[in-house]
């Protein structure tokens, strides 16, 4: 089972240094949430989709599309119904509340889609290397990237355990709540026992490969900021600036909206 979002490729987005790429994502999130009006998050979503096209990141987006559509659709509908405006449209929905709902939905979709495109174009190790260069201690970054690396292994083992117990007649779907919880014991015990065993083996393998052998380790992935990377930093900076401008000027508020 594959739970990574990374899509192998050599697009400009793949080649971008992970540090400015992280800044771009943070900038995107700030700018997306700055205004009430759907125009800004809508434009940003357009940019994210264009980036996905350039990077060939569609497989990753396709895998989260249900989540994206659910979250986007639900917030749009919920806020269109809940918020109050002055220009009636249909029942409790007003033009203002619909705009606000669309804005909120697009904010969530644009930020999640942006993060997914980031993960689709950034290897685990690049992410870790980027975090280290931004000052995170190596053991913390390693723990982070190893946790990500182990997710598929645990998911795979969990799936096997479920199949093994189902083959012995376990049926976790029937019965009332308490009964169902009790029925998970045959799944939880082997999963935890297995996790402890594999953590121990992992620690032995790490020791055997000299983890922490030297106070300073070197990095095979060398991060060097090229002109493109600096340009990305500039774009991220513009995004922050945009966020500040919108917030300070109050631009993009929807007149007549009461939340």
């Amino acid at each position: 089972m594959d739970v990574y979002l990374y899509v192998e490729g050599n697009s400009p987005l793949h080649r971008l240094d992970p540090r400015p790429k992280m800044l771009l994502v943070v900038g995107l999130i700030f700018l997306a949430v700055a205004a009430e009006h759907p125009l800004v998050p809508g434009a940003l979503l357009g940019l994210v989709l264009a980036a996905a096209q350039v990077a060939g990141a569609w497989p990753a987006l396709r895998r989260v599309r249900t989540i994206l559509l659910t979250i986007g659709g639900f917030s749009t509908v919920a806020w269109a119904l809940l918020a109050r405006g002055t220009t009636p449209l249909l029942g409790p929905v007003t033009v203002e509340s619909l705009l606000y709902g669309l804005g909120t939905g697009l904010k969530l979709v644009a930020t999640i889609a942006g993060s997914v495109v980031f993960l689709a174009t950034t290897k685990n190790e690049e992410l870790a290397a980027g975090l280290i260069r931004l000052g995170l201690p190596y053991p913390v970054a390693f723990a982070f990237s190893t946790a990500l690396r182990l997710v598929p292994t645990f998911v795979g083992t969990g799936a096997t355990i479920i199949q093994a117990q189902k083959s012995r007649g376990l049926d976790v779907e029937s019965g009332h709540l308490l009964e169902r919880m009790r029925k998970h014991i045959p799944l939880v015990v082997p999963i935890f026992a297995g996790a402890i065993r594999s953590a121990n083996r992992l620690a032995m393998a790490l020791e055997s490969k000299g983890f922490g052998a030297r106070p300073r380790r070197t990095y095979y992935l060398e991060l060097r900021m090229g002109p493109g990377d600096w340009a990305a930093v500039a774009v991220a900076a513009l995004m922050f600036l945009g966020f500040l401008l919108i917030r300070l000027t109050g631009w993009g508020e929807i007149p007549g909206l009461h939340r």
């Binding site: 290897k123 690396r149 992992l202 055997s208 070197t218």
Partner: peptide, 23 residues
């Protein structure tokens, strides 16, 4: 349980990185 990297070359690079070998 002895492979931790997300690609083959980084896996091979991991141990020498720990020993501070020049990239």
């Amino acid at each position: 349980s002895q492979l931790f990297s997300t690609n083959v070359e980084l896996e091979v690079a991991f141990a020498p990185e720990n020993f501070g070998v020049d990239p």
